[in-house]
Nucleic acid binder design. Structure first.
Length: 428
RNA sequence: GAGGGUAUAGCUCAGGUGGUUAGAGCGCGAGAUUGUGGCUCUCGAGGCCGUGGGUUCGAGUCCCAUUAUCCUCCCCA
């Protein structure tokens, strides 16, 4: 029996999942990154297990129970990356990028892996497009990073979304807040959900993220994170809000916005959509000012985000946003007979050399079947080649939209096709 | 890790209380049209009904197990 594909991993087949959507979406992201002057970094999909423990945090669920860990034949402990930041920063520190580029702006697109139960919009292998901006600590770059994320969704055509914004402050102010929060929650614990009692122990901030109605009631009067911010973080947040407003980016302050990684400081944000089932987060990110240093680099501020590609595709689907059709080929060759077939083999090669996307029938089917095939490939022209055409050194170029047929000489096939026009939206 | 739904053709799905050759639409292939697509009509191919066991004269249908998948919690993209 054929083994089943690994659970929870997405795959794209051209006719079913429509890999053209992936190309389109990734293309938009790459264009945006170029526009905002970010360069692509490609890092391995696996890294030393220790890297993720140090970067993401031992106490996070991701590290404690969701990583794909394995030992190599050589005895190294490696982990399939559960997120993109750690690997990018590892490369940044290792190659001492801060020397050549005091401000380093990177982007990546690739798969991440988390061993968890699948659900709508949640996969064991999922793709993220992300950026990391290193070496700049001000709210101006925060605004830029958020602006890219929002521009991405705008360009895709996703309009039903909410930008949530919060600040976690510095490690110190955050610690003071957690203390206050735990003090507040402690007497209420008996009434709280099991989940929140566990969070109280392991990661008290996450109590705020609860979905239990009773917990929400109990936490209604809990101290707010923003009230515990240190003055600089407070000013940073104020300025960022000012910038966002100036850029016309709508946001909602959410003092309960808590994100999953331990490394976040100050700015955190999340972009939410109602169109992805129970997963509301299309993407999110934040500032991680201590992380580079923690990984052995110089003290370096940084901010980044990760956007879920599958989730964006789901949101497009459920919102019914039209996705542009991929271009079809320019010409589909229809040989009638063996002599024609031989001629078409050469013709095909000529067309492709001239940068015109082309294909032909390889099965010797009837004219009708070949035209249907041309139709299916969304060919702009069907080039019909039979004995009489061979004799005269021509082909019949049938415009698949107008059904107009033009006889053109094979000697100038590429120029003639271009001369007929209508190629702009076809495959070149 | 916890809970629930589903599993029948390539795809989306029908198959009251078990009964003999398991169906539809779409898609695919051929023909109607000797070298002309999209519409129409006709015909056809394609299923050990997820897997293993059980009950029964008889199981796609009932029972148990198992696997996969979808959904919800946890958590996150």
């Amino acid at each position: 029996m054929l083994p089943a594909p690994p659970s929870g991993a997405t795959q794209a087949r051209p006719w079913i999942e429509d890999s053209s959507r992936w190309h389109w979406l990734e293309g938009i992201f790459r264009e945006l990154c170029a526009l905002y002057s970010y360069e692509e970094i490609r890092t391995p999909v696996f890294e030393a297990t220790d890297l993720f423990h140090r970067a993401v945090g031992e106490s996070t669920d991701i590290v404690s129970k969701e990583t794909y860990d394995f030992t190599t034949r050589g005895g190294d402990d490696l982990t399939l990356r559960p997120e993109g930041t750690a690997g990018a920063l590892r490369a940044y520190v290792q190659h001492r990028l801060h020397i050549e580029r005091p401000v380093t702006k990177l982007y990546y697109i690739g798969p991440n892996f988390r061993y968890e139960r699948g659900q709508a919009g949640r996969y064991r292998q999922h793709y993220q497009a992300g950026i990391e901006a290193l070496g700049a600590g001000g709210p101006d770059i925060d605004a830029e990073v958020i602006a890219i994320a929002m521009a991405f969704y705008t360009r895709l055509g996703i309009t039903r979304l909410t930008l949530k914004l919060n600040s976690l402050g510095t490690a110190e102010s955050r610690a003071r807040y957690v203390e206050a929060l735990r003090a507040y929650a402690e007497p209420l614990l008996p009434e709280m959900s099991e989940d929140n009692r566990r969070r109280y122990q392991t990661n008290a901030l996450r109590m705020l993220d609860t979905k239990h109605p009773r917990d929400l009631e109990l936490l209604a009067d809990a101290p707010a994170l923003t009230d515990y911010l240190d003055p600089e973080s407070r000013a940073h947040l104020d300025t960022l809000q000012h910038y966002l407003s100036g850029l016309g980016i709508a946001y909602e302050m959410d003092p309960r916005l808590v994100r999953g990684f331990d490394y976040y400081t100050r700015t955190t944000f999340e972009i939410q959509s109602p169109d992805v089932g129970a997963q509301s987060a299309l993407g999110g990110g934040g500032r991680y000012d201590g992380l580079v240093e923690q990984l052995g680099g110089p003290p370096t501020p940084g901010i980044g985000f990760g956007l879920g590609i599958e989730r964006a595709l789901i949101a497009l689907e459920t919102a019914g946003v039209p996705v542009p059709e991929p271009p079809g080929i320019v010409a589909f060759l229809c040989p009638l007979g063996d002599a024609a077939r031989a001629a078409c083999v050469n013709l095909l090669s000529h067309l492709r050399s001239a940068n015109l996307a082309a294909d032909m029938d390889y099965t010797g089917r009837k004219m009708k079947a070949m035209l249907e095939q041309a139709d299916k490939l969304r060919a702009r022209y069907a080039l019909i080649v039979g004995d009489s055409e061979i004799e005269r050194g021509v082909v019949q170029a049938r415009d698949m939209r107008t059904t107009q047929q033009t006889e053109i000489p094979v000697a100038h096939i590429a120029e003639s096709l271009r001369g007929l026009g209508g190629l702009s939206e076809a495959g070149r």
